[in-house]
Design a protein around this nucleic acid. Structure first.
Length: 505
DNA sequence: ATGTTC
């Protein structure tokens, strides 16, 4: 870390007392470009190759601190970064890169960095529809929530209902949710309604270490902990009737949202390759302002090894969400005595929140293949993009934005300006404003559970501390975050979803 | 986020 960085960090700490108003140093670090766009000029820190850019409303400005701004600036120092080091309105401090960060790199001049993906590789969200109404479900919500809690293992270190063998694990690393569907955990349509059709090509299980395999095997089909959840929600508002019709959403409809990732497997893949990349930084003499930005030239063996292992982690996560959705269907089938078809339990879509991808974008007016890192950011391809499934192509890719526990989630569609503004990316959620530790010591999980119960939301968690960590008040309001990307035309609102039953790890 | 602070 540079001396300059330390000085600024100190300054920000001393200002933290005056919370509600935006600290002067935050204002001083940003140049306002328009209503929802703020730039960090390259003059801020020595070594910035491109400016930083935060998509944010004035209202949310107080949720940003100087340490977050400097992480965005630090990323702009990485070789081969294109256009801007970007951040979404749900941005907050992360490992090296912010959560809510988007950064694209030239494949020849640029780098690949695990910090730009995160430890939970392909943490993501899927939304499954039903044809049940709120009235069909609310009277039974306690029973349903309880059944789901028992069917789907959750919590830190939770073990699954079945153990995949080594061959199956390799298949999952290579073929993601396609493997899960072929193994009987789903229906053929499921993979069509998924980003990248449920798996990325190019995974190489030989780049996944023994430890990652050991951790991954027993955790298959588990939810995990932290902000991960399974929610029964209902559609309470439609903003865009045409898009809603194309997605099959209508007011009063009950849906299930599943938010989880690659569990210990992805975590171990990230940890292992960070070690290699720490060495690569020295070997290739890359000047990085923060050790957490470990990276290697995109075409180097070290970077490609990580990328091939990361794909395995991403595919594991897609298979994991697929298996969890399958068990959710079984719970509903048993409860209502109807099958999946009769219950209309179709997958609307599944998106990755933490992943790096080789994609085609327009840079300086020319088509170019780049490595886009999305860490706490959602792909949001617009109408007409060839990667959007045929049946959604006229509307745009579904963009699923979970709220924090007890607050609304949103379905958006990829907006007309996402390709020009943000490498086809939008926000991924509400975004924390308070750290986990602080939340745990400040909040009572049991009190929050009772308050949510008064609001008609049944929460079933592994332990109360998880509820405290994820209290709605430790997050930015999801509606304000979503409004920013909506107003920018990065992704446009289609429907709002209100939780009624929540399973947490 | 995480076999919870290498």
């Amino acid at each position: 870390m540079t001396q300059q960085y330390e000085n600024q960090k100190g300054k920000s700490d001393s200002n933290r007392e005056s919370t509600d108003s935006v600290p002067e140093d935050v204002m001083g670090a940003l140049n306002r470009v328009n209503e929802n766009t703020w730039d960090i000029p390259t003059s801020r820190l020595r070594g910035m190759r491109v400016p930083g850019r935060i998509f944010l409303s004035e209202k949310l400005l107080s949720s940003i601190d100087l340490a977050t701004i400097d992480q965005i600036a630090n990323v702009s120092m990485l070789p081969g970064i294109l256009d801007y080091s970007m951040a979404m309105p749900d941005v907050h401090l992360g490992y090296g890169f912010t959560i809510g960060g988007v950064a694209a790199f030239d494949p020849q001049e640029g780098v690949i960095s695990p910090g730009g993906v995160g430890f939970d590789i392909n943490c993501g969200v899927r939304l499954m529809k039903t044809n049940l109404t709120r009235e069909d479900v609310v009277p039974h919500i306690k029973t349903l929530t309880e059944s789901l809690f028992h069917k789907i293992p959750s919590g830190v270190g939770s073990k699954g209902q079945f153990r995949v063998n080594d061959t199956q694990l390799t298949d999952a690393f290579l073929h993601g949710s396609e493997w899960a569907v072929e193994s009987g955990y789903g229906i053929e349509d499921d993979t069509k309604n998924c980003e990248s059709a449920g798996f990325m090509k190019g995974g190489n299980p030989e780049k996944v270490g023994v430890k990652a395999r050991q951790r991954g095997r027993p955790q298959f089909g588990t939810l995990g902990s932290g902000n991960h959840f399974l929610e029964i929600q209902y559609v309470d508002k439609i903003y865009d009737p045409v898009a809603a019709a194309a997605y099959g959403l209508y007011e009063g409809q009950v849906n299930v949202m599943i938010h989880c990732g690659s569990r210990g497997a992805g975590h171990q893949i990230c940890t292992d390759h960070l070690q290699n990349l720490n060495e690569a930084v020295k070997k290739y003499k890359i000047d990085i302002p923060d050790k957490q930005l470990a990276c290697a030239p995109a075409e180097s063996k070290e970077a490609q090894d990580y990328y091939e292992a990361m794909i395995c982690g991403a595919n594991y996560a897609w298979a994991n969400r697929q298996v969890i959705m399958h068990w959710t269907r079984e719970v509903f089938e048993n409860f209502y005595g109807k099958d999946v078809d009769e219950l209309g339990m179709k997958l609307l879509y599944d998106v990755a929140h933490n992943v790096a991808k080789y994609e085609t974008h327009t840079v300086d007016g020319k088509k170019k293949d780049v490595y886009v890192h999305r860490k706490g950011a959602t792909r949001a391809f617009p109408a007409g993009h060839p990667e959007v499934p045929q049946h959604y192509r006229d509307v745009g890719q579904p963009v699923l934005i979970p709220g924090s526990m007890g607050t609304p989630s949103f379905v958006l569609k990829g907006g007309p300006r996402s390709m020009e503004l943000s490498f086809g990316s939008a926000c991924h959620g509400a975004g924390r404003v308070m750290g986990r530790g602080q939340a745990k010591s400040n909040m009572s999980g049991e009190a929050i559970r009772e308050e949510l119960a008064r609001q008609g939301i049944t929460v079933r968690a592994d332990k109360p501390s998880v509820i405290a960590e994820e209290a709605p008040s430790v997050y930015k309001p999801s509606d304000e975050v979503v409004d920013v990307v909506d107003q920018l035309g990065i992704a446009n609102k289609v429907a709002r979803l209100i939780p009624i039953g929540v399973i947490k790890g």
